[in-house]
Design a protein around this nucleic acid. Structure first.
Lengths: 187, 187
DNA sequence: GTCATGGCCTTTACGCAGTAAGGTGCAATA
DNA sequence: TATTGCACCTTACTGCGTAAAGGCCATGAC
């Protein structure tokens, strides 16, 4: 007999497998049965690790993708630090663009808030007063999420033979980010 | 016998009824059977008017909510015109926040593009060169959609007893919009 | 050894979803 | 009156999430 053992099923492995399905086949094809197949387990086994079932699974996906705070204390110009962090955040959102719709739904209260708070703190330490920093953090997060949504949609559309393959998304992103940063610098 | 006639079912009435369900009970409770009930018709009757079924229904919802171009030729300062249009767009997005997740998914190719193009044209007539206007239009649309997502989420969260009921969303929105417009003015 | 315990997984079953296929009834036309 | 075609209904199928309960097996106590 060859080895019939398998990795033990854990919360982390479940969420990893789910993310893999979403990235490869889309959110609509993420079902408990398919997820069970990917883990070589019956669908109901998942409920042992995620008692709240699919709700908890989707919450986990959101947390995995959206939670990415930046350190408030590192050095350097705040604009440059935000640019670097934003580039990484955008990359993550696009890599897992299938979960973007879930960011919008009310799931997972704290997932975005921690990240937003870290941005706000960076802005606060840069000298903006509290209300301005809060607005700025929201503006930045809004731009990041909205742009990711537009970019994911645009890329999917032109892959499917839509009109414009002519958009340089990297340029669009950094250009828009610079607009927001420039606006922030003079507030 | 009382009148047993009913309004004839039309594409428009279907989409109106669907929007009503989504606004009142959430996207998750929009089903063909429930929609049929609302129209006093069996679910399968809907397929006569929307042959592609639920796909076509959701596309219709997106179009109804997201299509809102602004006229390129009206007079006034471009900043003020954008502010006025953006306020209306935000209101519409929030009124139908249940369909926001659908904006993100690839549905309905042209729904957002027409609106974006109209913003780009306004910016172009304001003196920005083409590439800058395109980036600016994208930045604005990204901010609008992202902010609507954050606001809808934040409002739902604090209604459900979450932490911050202390956010003045009107102020946040106009503040963020001013940041973007200020950034645009100097690009 | 033996036996109970408890963690991990499977089996079975239920209600609800979207929708394919084909049937029904009625108004307009010929 | 006979015909046609549109609007709607009936039936039935597959797949979904998950409640409930049962099986298996390593571990530790005696």
């Amino acid at each position: 007999m060859t080895s019939q053992h398998r990795e033990p099923v854990t919360r982390d492995r479940i969420i990893d497998a789910a993310l893999h399905i979403v990235d490869g086949q889309g959110l609509g094809r993420l079902t408990m049965r398919r997820l069970g197949d990917a883990l070589e387990v019956e669908a109901m086994a998942i409920y042992h690790h995620l008692p709240r079932g699919k709700e908890e699974l989707l919450d986990g996906l959101v947390a995995h993708v959206a939670v990415d705070p930046l350190s408030a204390t590192a050095g350097g110009e705040w604009q440059d630090r935000l640019r670097g962090w934003a580039a990484g955040y955008r990359e993550r959102l696009l890599e897992h663009s299938g979960v973007l719709p879930l960011l919008v739904t009310r799931r997972n209260p704290a997932a975005l808030d921690g990240t937003t708070a870290s941005v706000q703190e960076v802005l606060g330490r840069a000298g903006l007063r509290e209300e301005t920093a809060a607005t700025g953090a929201h503006t930045l997060m809004g731009y990041l999420i909205g742009h990711a949504a537009l970019e994911a949609r645009g890329r999917a559309l032109s892959e499917a033979g839509g009109p414009g393959g002519a958009i340089d998304w990297d340029l669009r992103f950094t250009g828009g980010l610079d607009v927001v940063l420039a606006g922030l610098a003079q507030s």
